[in-house]
Design a protein around this nucleic acid. Structure first.
Lengths: 223, 223
DNA sequence: AAAAAGTCAATTGTTAACAATCTACTTTCG
DNA sequence: CGAAAGTAGATTGTTAACAATTGACTTTTT
């Protein structure tokens, strides 16, 4: 059979990538079931690669398999999010310490551009983009450490459905302005302040975001 | 075909478990190649489950796949180990903070017994057991947080071949007495001291171990 | 009518064959 | 003799069929 000349990646990788995106994106909702055969049919491939892809994103923490029962997208509670944020906060402050507050210039530029894009996305109310930009910004913070390991660990937590929680469980809009202002303060701290100051900003950020989000949830409930 | 009546677990799980053990154990050495067909033949099963198992322990960080090339056991440098230890140290101190230094009594008992066993294993010079006990002790520290997420993150790093490094790369004996004495200090801190004191003990531990290990390596080289 | 047992469809778990790709070796050509 | 090109074997990537397990539905039994 003739294969598309473009695909350098293996089917497993492609499927994993797409499914991951769909879950983080919210197209496939938490609690929803994913059936191997259906996915295989949709992509016009066999079940093998689909199975492997699902198994991979299971390890990443996005879905769970129960033996002989199948595969469902993980749900995440408010408490789960707080827990994840506490760990992320710790890892990101560790990154700041590891680089002694010296942000590589390429990362600084990326963060700068990121903030601009965040402004644009906020105007358009493009929720998906916001989530992506948020992830990019924080990944820059982590990568300041230059540690592959730290990045991998951090990332494994990120996939733990934090973004999906934003977009799905609450369906409430992320308070863009708070987000952007916080990020700005973090970048500024990296530029001009001490390591301790940077850490304080990061910790502060991860205290405020869930709090604001909680308020949003309450507001929504009282409608 | 008639299957062994014992196995409640899926083949993938069984194979993953065995291979993981063999790698951490040192039976399969870092840098060594693992060929799906060989493993399948050895277990008298087809390549499918073997493949899935390998893919899983790849995600865990024990091996790497290169597309169409195959699967090799990850190697770890001294610097890698230091990096891993720094992160582990941070995560374990976070655990101590999360439980405010209040160690659940079942964990305290496990740690107590762990120390006893460590003494026995040290006498027998049972390297493999030492590695296992070391892992158990630290997992108790992490679990004091009662956080599934934290445990999972920590564990993902643990599998990153730290133990294998102990047993394989250096092939030098872990300084048992230092290890046990350190663990004892940590447990003691949990029992009687403040959170800050516990954190200090943990951090201290993760400073000393690589240092001592480095000295062992030097000694070995100069033989 | 309620509980137990049995059937059936759906879905995951496993297998074995086939296709694509890589590595190393051999051959060819300058 | 050395470099480029081709070839063969080994190994991973993919497929499609088959087996085992589960859960819901139906039937039987009391």
């Amino acid at each position: 059979m003739v294969k598309a000349a473009v695909s350098r990646k293996t089917l497993r990788e492609q499927v994993a990538e797409i499914l991951r995106k769909k879950i983080l994106n919210g197209e496939i909702k938490p609690g929803e079931r994913i059936i191997e055969a259906d996915v295989a049919k949709a992509f016009q491939i066999s079940r093998g690669p689909v199975r492997e892809a699902l198994r991979q994103i299971e390890e990443e923490g996005l879905v769970t398999y129960e033996s002989h029962k199948g595969c469902i997208v993980k749900t995440m509670s408010y408490e789960d999010m707080q827990e994840a944020y506490l760990i992320r906060s710790t890892l990101e402050t560790l990154a700041a310490k590891m680089c002694s507050g010296n942000l590589p210039s390429d990362l600084e530029e990326r963060m700068e551009r990121n903030l601009e894009k965040m402004g644009e996305a906020a105007e358009k109310r493009d929720l998906y983009q916001i989530v992506e930009l948020d992830e990019e910004f924080h990944s820059c913070v982590v990568m300041s450490s230059q540690s592959e390991k730290l990045y991998k660990v951090w990332k494994s937590l990120e996939s733990g459905n934090t973004s999906a929680y934003f977009t799905m469980e609450t369906e409430s809009l992320v308070p863009f302005d708070v987000l952007k202002a916080n990020h700005q303060r973090i970048l500024e701290a990296f530029r001009t302040k001490s390591v301790e100051e940077i850490c304080r900003e990061i910790e502060n950020h991860y205290m405020i975001v869930p709090k604001v989000l909680f308020e949003e949830m309450q507001k929504k409930k009282n409608l």
